[in-house]
Each structure stands twice: as structure tokens, then as C-alpha cells.
Design a protein around this nucleic acid. Structure first.
Lengths: 136, 136
DNA sequence: TTGGATGCAAACATTTTGCATTAGC
DNA sequence: GCTAATGCAAAATGTTTGCATCCAA
């Protein structure tokens, strides 16, 4: 399923072989690669692709709202192509595996105006921590 | 203030001038410094303190459970001395300011067993995004 | 006294930048 | 052809490591 590529083409995104490969690597569910992992996978199909291009492309996809950045461990940022459907993350403290989850309720509603310090709150990220079946 | 220093002494933590200064820098509310900010502030009182010592000390404080790491922007990790009272974070997308907040409800209860992929869930981090009064 | 803590410098990992070349539209 | 995208290499940023020295208990 190449929803991502199709959406990008419709939006008039200038298509190059590098950008196509990056978009293909990011296509799928529960995908949360680091920039370096994206580069490695892209290089399997397009050996000459450079890291700078991967970083540029990921940055653009984030700016376009087609991919979101997630920061689960203070190390490398990860890129999540599941940007159209709101969801949260479940991270294994053992092996680092990340799964998309859909909790009930609305975390935004849980933060009363009185506790917002005058901020205009626009979004919320939730990261659940635990151990996956294999690590438990 | 200085609950932190006192707790550390009680726990038999070997005290040095460097560790004391780091603990003093971290003492307070809504404190979320990067390792480098801790180093800069510590160096005002103890110019010869090294970055390595600051990193070592922060790592130990985290291991002791007296400080928690927060990762709000994919760049440097930040260190939060408010580890005894559970709370979440409100981050300004403009200037990066971070405030501790205390939402209602329990996010853990919002993730039904059926959506946990067999994980043993032990904790949750919530980051609210918005604009502070000055940036709005 | 002695094991653990420190400082230094170098290595390492991740991300950004400048600029000449290339290629999509 | 014009403009934007690419590749390369260097730099910027953040963190870890090895090892000789120093110091709190």
C-alpha cells in the first residue's frame, strides 16, 4: 500500500528516485525507523543515496505533516508515517520495539485550564513504557 | 530547598564538591536543564568541573531514581529533579520552555489490555505541546 | 589507605550546513 | 532552462570512554 507516495504526488511534491525510495521505506504499520535505518534500507535499492538527502527528505515529510517525529529514548529521533490517524506509542524497555496504540479517552481533556499556565495547548504525545512478550 | 542533597546524603551517596554543586543546580521547581546547562551553571561555582563528571553524576542520579530524564525535542536530554511527585510536561513549541503539570485521570487506565500487544505496561509519559503566553 | 570520583582528551553518534553538480518539471 | 534536489565532506552538537590523578570516607 503506497498511500504515502500517492498523497505526495497529489500534493505536487517533486518526485525523485531518492524521495520515492524513502517514501517506500516508510510505508507500513508500526514503522518507526531512525534516519540512519531509513538510509540503510533506502541504500539497498539505491546505493548512492546520501545521508543528507535522507535527512532533507525526512524533514520535508515532517513539515508536510505526512510523517511525525518520535523521540522515545533520548538517542536518535524516529520517523512515524502513521500521521493521519492519531495514536500513541508503546515502547519496550528491553529491546526498544515500538507499537502504535489507541488508548481510550482524550488526554487533552485531562489537563484543566487552571493547570495550563496560560499556555495555548494544541497537542499531546503519550508514551507507554513496558516489556514486550519476548523481553518479559 | 535542598531536599535532594539531604536525601542523597541519607542514602550514603559519596559527597564531593562537584556532586554537591550539581545537586544544588538541579534543586527547584520546573527545572529541566540539559547536561550542558547543568555544567555551565555548576561551573559558575566550581570552574574546574568537567563535562564528564556532570554526565557521570546525572547518570547516577537517574539510576538512583532521584532525577528523571525527559526528551522533549529530539535534541539534548533534559534532567528533571521532580522525581518524587508524578507529573507530566507542558512544552512551548516557540521557546522550548517546560512546565510541570498534573493532569486529571490516569493515562495507564486508558490503555485497555486488548490494545497492549501482550506488553507488561509499567509507566507512561505525557507531553503536552502548545504556546506559552509570551510566544502566543 | 584505598576504592571510587574526577579531569582531560579523544572517540563516537547524530544532525546540520556549504557548495558544486545533477535532474525533474 | 530554471529551479530545486542531490552528494560529499566538513562542522556542529551531544554523549561516552580510557586512563592517570586525586580525594572522601
Amino acid at each position: 500500500m503506497s498511500d504515502l507516495l500517492e498523497r505526495l504526488r497529489e500534493r505536487g511534491w517533486r518526485m525523485t528516485s531518492q524521495r520515492r525510495v524513502v517514501a517506500e521505506v516508510l510505508d507500513g504499520d508500526h514503522v518507526h525507523y531512525t534516519a540512519d535505518e531509513v538510509h540503510a534500507r533506502a541504500a539497498l535499492r539505491l546505493p548512492e543515496i546520501s545521508r543528507a538527502t535522507v535527512y532533507n527528505t525526512l524533514g520535508e515529510l515532517v513539515a508536510l505533516g505526512e510523517v511525525t517525529e518520535v523521540c522515545t529514548d533520548g538517542r536518535a529521533r524516529r520517523y512515524d508515517p502513521n500521521a493521519h490517524r492519531p495514536h500513541q506509542h508503546l515502547v519496550c524497555s528491553g529491546c526498544g520495539t515500538i507499537r502504535d496504540v489507541h488508548p481510550l479517552g482524550d488526554p487533552l481533556a485531562d489537563l484543566p485550564a487552571a493547570g495550563r499556565f496560560g499556555f495555548t495547548v494544541s497537542g499531546v504525545e503519550v508514551t507507554y513504557r513496558g516489556l514486550c512478550p519476548a523481553c518479559a
